[in-house]
């Protein structure tokens, strides 16, 4: 067999374009005091500071809308772990976003029960309604634990259902206008199934 081409870059040596990221020191990140305080309070609640990784990432996401690299570094500096560790954790979970997303979040269930009751169509309706609107993140989601109100959606972390496709538009308008979203479809208000007269 002929000689393999020697990787030319090697003989000269490669130079990384960016620096590696170890545990950042607090003075190297500009961690907003309230974020630092929140995370430090959380650390006090658990026997081991590593336990706060999810709550700390939630705090980062609440502050920045998603888990920004800078936010992850800030949390990492307070927790004294590598940002890589937190990114690894964040990327494991569906609710933590390591890419930019709109700050209003709509998750439409497309799992078995919702699918049977029109979940796919509802997702399409939400997507269409969100078209061209800013600061919105619409996504299909696995079972949200509300098959009783299928087809359903979680809108800014509150559950609504059963929804008609026509209601997607209304919901998004209300959401962006800062109004109460579909008050009559809120899970909050639903009686126990056995007590309803439907």
């Amino acid at each position: 067999m002929a000689d393999f081409p020697v990787d030319q870059a090697v003989s000269e040596g490669r130079v990384p374009e960016r620096s590696p990221e170890l545990v950042p020191e607090l003075h190297e990140v500009e961690c907003p005091p309230e974020l630092r305080e929140q995370i430090e309070t959380l650390i006090g609640r658990y026997p081991d500071r590593h336990s706060v990784s999810i709550p700390a990432l939630w705090a980062v996401q609440r502050l920045y809308g998603w888990c920004t690299p800078e936010g992850i570094r800030q949390a990492a500096a307070v927790m004294r772990v590598t940002p890589a560790y937190l990114e690894s954790v964040a990327s494991f979970y569906d609710l933590l976003h390591t890419e930019p997303v709109g700050s209003h979040k709509v998750a439409v269930c497309t799992n078995i029960s919702c699918w049977m009751r029109g979940g796919d169509e509802l997702l399409d309706a939400f997507r269409a309604a969100a078209e061209g609107r800013e600061d919105l993140f619409v996504t299909g989601f696995e079972c949200l634990g509300a098959c009783d109100i299928a087809p359903m959606a979680s809108i800014d972390e509150r559950y609504f259902g059963p929804l008609e496709t026509a209601e997607a538009h209304t919901a998004i308008d209300q959401l962006l206008a800062g109004e109460n979203v579909l008050p009559e479809k809120s899970l909050e208000k639903r009686p126990l199934a056995g007590d309803s007269d439907a």
Partner: peptide, 10 residues
């Protein structure tokens, strides 16, 4: 991978 696609230097 690494954080933010940084190089792994250790």
């Amino acid at each position: 991978g690494t954080f933010d696609d940084r190089p792994y230097v250790d």
